[in-house]
C-alpha cells in the first residue's frame, strides 16, 4: 500500500485529496471559475499536512486528464507531472468521464460535461458495451439520448434546458477524490494505467490568415 495524492482541476473546482496507506481519506474542494493556479498548491500542501505527511511521503499521484476546461486540465496536469518528475513516483491519468461515472449507481448512465460553448462532452456507460467519449451539439444530443438513461455531470441542467429531455439526473459538479484514486490504483495494478496526458477531445481553435502574401522571385 502506498499514500496517494489525487488532483482534479478539470471542472470548475480545485479538488484535492490524500488517501493514506491505511485507507484514511483527507480531502478539500473549492469551487471557482478561475484562480485554480493560485489555490491549488496551497490546498495540496494543506491536505498533505492534514494527513500527517510531507510531499516526499506520497508514493503515487492520480490526476484527471479530461475532458474539461483546457486551462483547468493543464493546471492539474502540470502540477502532477512535475511532482512525479521530481519524486520519481508514478503519476496515473484518470478520464473525467470514468471518475464521474464511478459515482453514478446505475447503468446506462450518460455523463455530460460542460464545454463552456454550445456543445457537450458526452460519454455513455453501459454494462454490456464500452463507448467512446465525444463532443456533441444540443441537436445531436437530443437525438442521441434515450429516456431510460440516467444523466450525470455538470452540464446536466443546461442539457435538460436546451433539449427538453426529462431523464432522471444526478448533478455531479466534480468527481469524487476516492473514486479517482480507486480507479487509478486499479489501472496501475492491472498495468492499464493512462499516462498523465491531457484528453482535450477538441482541437485548438485556429483561424488561418487570409491576407495575401507576396512571393520573392
Amino acid at each position: 500500500m502506498t499514500h496517494w495524492l489525487a488532483i482534479d482541476t478539470a471542472m470548475n473546482a480545485c479538488n484535492v485529496g490524500v488517501r493514506t496507506s491505511d485507507g484514511q481519506l483527507f480531502q478539500s474542494i473549492a469551487y471557482m471559475d478561475r484562480g485554480q493556479s493560485e489555490q491549488l498548491m496551497p490546498m495540496v500542501q494543506d491536505v498533505v499536512r492534514q494527513a500527517g505527511l510531507a510531499l516526499p511521503d506520497i508514493g503515487a499521484y492520480a490526476v484527471t486528464v479530461g475532458p474539461g476546461t483546457f486551462t483547468g486540465l493543464r493546471v492539474g496536469l502540470a502540477t502532477v507531472r512535475a511532482l512525479s518528475q521530481v519524486s520519481s513516483k508514478p503519476a496515473i491519468g484518470v478520464s473525467t468521464f470514468d471518475a464521474l461515472a464511478a459515482a453514478v449507481p446505475e447503468r446506462p448512465a450518460c455523463i455530460l460535461i460542460e464545454t463552456k460553448r454550445s456543445d457537450y462532452y458526452v460519454r455513455l456507460f453501459e454494462n454490456a458495451h464500452l463507448h467512446e467519449g465525444m463532443c456533441m451539439s444540443p441537436d445531436d444530443l437530443r437525438k442521441y439520448i434515450q429516456l431510460h438513461w440516467i444523466l450525470a455531470g455538470d452540464a446536466v441542467a443546461r442539457a435538460l434546458d436546451e433539449t427538453g429531455l426529462t431523464n432522471k439526473t444526478l448533478g455531479l459538479t466534480a468527481p469524487k477524490i476516492n473514486d479517482i484514486i480507486t480507479l487509478a490504483s486499479a489501472d496501475w495494478q492491472s498495468g492499464k494505467a493512462l499516462p498523465p496526458d491531457p484528453m482535450y477531445l477538441r482541437g485548438a481553435d485556429v483561424s488561418i490568415s487570409k491576407r495575401k502574401l507576396a512571393k520573392i522571385v
Binding site: 493556479s37 491549488l40 498548491m41 495540496v44 500542501q45 510531507a54 510531499l55 516526499p56 483546457f70 486551462t71 493543464r74 493546471v75 502540470a78 502540477t79 502532477v80 507531472r81 512535475a82 511532482l83 518528475q85 521530481v86 519524486s87
Partner: peptide
C-alpha cells in the same frame, strides 16, 4: 499568454513545494 504561463508556473511551484 496565460495558458502557457500557468504551465510553467505550476511546474515551478510543484518542484519547489516538493523540494521544500
Amino acid at each position: 499568454l496565460i495558458g502557457g504561463v500557468m504551465v510553467g508556473l505550476m511546474t515551478g511551484k510543484a518542484i519547489a513545494a516538493h523540494l521544500d
